[in-house]
């Protein structure tokens, strides 16, 4: 039944059903909501004013989140203990570690020293006439004496060899050898 007489009579005229209904709202409002609302709204008004001001001056800035990228270090709950394990390290282990390091260093040395390479390109591109000019006459003469047989001069006769004819070669070869030759040629 409605408390307001006018509303009640109006509904009653429509149907007696409405006399059975209470006009209360079943919803609950959080405690102190209406006490705090005016101050919340005032704060919101100020925030809106800042937003609208920036929207007029530089709208792009309103699209950028206001968080700074800076981080505040997280406070340590406890001080980390100083690592004292080096004091407790046993000597045999240290000696073994030193030996391993020594082997590694020496191995690296030998490996890299064997792999030393020379730059031959300087010799390949060099002018032989210029190199010879830097060598003394006595050095050249002693070299020529030592390698006399290797030096070919235009006057030295070249030994001629006579090539065996095909017919002679065929006559000298067996049938088996000829057959193998033909098969390998194919």
């Amino acid at each position: 039944m409605h408390q307001n007489k006018t509303i009640h009579e109006e509904l009653e005229a429509l149907s007696p059903f409405w006399t059975t209904i209470q006009s209360q709202m079943p919803y609950i409002v959080p405690a102190n909501y209406f006490e705090t609302l005016p101050s919340i709204v005032r704060a919101k008004v100020e925030t809106e004013a800042v937003y609208e001001e920036l929207e007029l001056i530089a709208p792009l800035l309103n699209t950028i989140p206001k968080q700074t990228g800076y981080q505040i270090p997280v406070a340590q709950d406890k001080v980390l203990p100083v690592n004292t394990s080096i004091k407790m390290f046993p000597w045999p282990k240290l000696a073994l570690a030193a030996a391993i390091i020594g082997v590694a260093v020496l191995g690296n040395y030998f490996y890299t020293s064997e792999k030393q390479t020379f730059d031959y390109s300087a010799y390949i591109d060099a002018d032989p006439a210029q190199i010879i000019q830097t060598i003394s006459d006595s050095t050249l003469l002693s070299y020529m004496d030592a390698h006399e047989k290797l030096i070919v001069t235009p006057d030295a006769p070249i030994q001629e060899y006579e090539l065996e004819s095909d017919e002679a070669l065929m006559q000298r070869s067996s049938d088996q050898e000829l057959l193998e030759y033909i098969q390998s040629s194919n």
Partner: peptide
């Protein structure tokens, strides 16, 4: 007027949270 406006909105939106959002917007 806040209570009258609150109930006017809440009867339509049902949820308090939605009503609160809309009411704040209205009062601004």
């Amino acid at each position: 007027y806040q209570e009258k406006l609150y109930w006017h909105i809440r009867r339509m939106l049902v949820s308090h949270e939605d009503t609160n959002d809309v009411l704040q917007m209205v009062l601004v």
